[in-house]
Design a protein around this nucleic acid. Sequence first.
DNA 1: GCTACTATGTATAACTT
DNA 2: TAAGTTATACATAGTAG
Lengths: 166, 166
Amino acid sequence: MGKSKGHQKIEIKRIQNEDHRQVMFSKRRKGLSKKAGELCILCGAETALIVFSPASKVFSFGHPFVNYVINRYIDKSSATQNNDGVIHELSRRLTEVNEEVEAEKKKGLMILDEVKKEKVLRQFWWEELIDKLDVNELKQLKVAMEEPVSKFEPIITSTRYLHAFT
Amino acid sequence: MGKSKGHQKIEIKRIQNEDHRQVMFSKRRKGLSKKAGELCILCGAETALIVFSPASKVFSFGHPFVNYVINRYIDKSSATQNNDGVIHELSRRLTEVNEEVEAEKKKGLMILDEVKKEKVLRQFWWEELIDKLDVNELKQLKVAMEEPVSKFEPIITSTRYLHAFT
DNA sequence: GCTACTATGTATAACTT
DNA sequence: TAAGTTATACATAGTAG
């Protein structure tokens, strides 16, 4: 007797209850693999999906093989200068940002003190990350930054970026 | 007048019609990325998704980053020894911070006309940007986007960005 | 934790513009 | 050609075992 409220709407945010989260992970991971497989069959796509659970268990799906797709991805990004993937990833990130901003604005602006506090935390995060990026990534960024890209400047406004390389 | 038969049942096999297949690919690829992102947010998973279209276009999604997840997949044992461990730790912190942000968003409640204007201009800004950037600039932006300060700053100092393309 | 069930939300196949 | 609409299939949140 399934006495259930059925599929209720949920907010997309971290599930607090650990058990619930685990169950959700299991279900959704399977669903994701299934859909990845369907995409391959229906459309002739080649796909790799790697998922680490919070407990660091790995799950993967690949068509034709995970490693094959990964290699293809790596080759593509290093050899060819195909913007598509980059653009896609960028637009995805930007979309995320915009959505976040929009959601934020709908609810209201954060209290100024809290904004400052968050900003400090984020700076730390970012500065540490820069320190830990591998040499190639730093070179890439450095080269990119040495190019005259005036239309780009607005993004890189902070001097924080600069001493990462000095 | 949407005179449609709606979502009909389909067999999971290669779609023969090329146009139909392309449309299906586009839709399902987006759906897949969305669900991958939801899995990450809901369950704290780390995920990489790489999809090659039949025309060899690459699309990818990664949290925290595609390359990070791939590296972790390829060589899990080194994760604690090199920077991956740091990045992992940092990504955890980012998640925590984001949770805090989410919590804080709920506190504030001020909708501003100014803010709406900014939203429109901002969308214009990034769409133009994507169209105009060359490879080096994309690399640069990619790096910039991968750190949370830039995603955050526009909220506060956005007016600096707006005349870049006007 | 895993499977089964049910009610419901969501994704999406077919169609329109 | 992509973007929007509609009807339906499918995924899945909640629950029980």
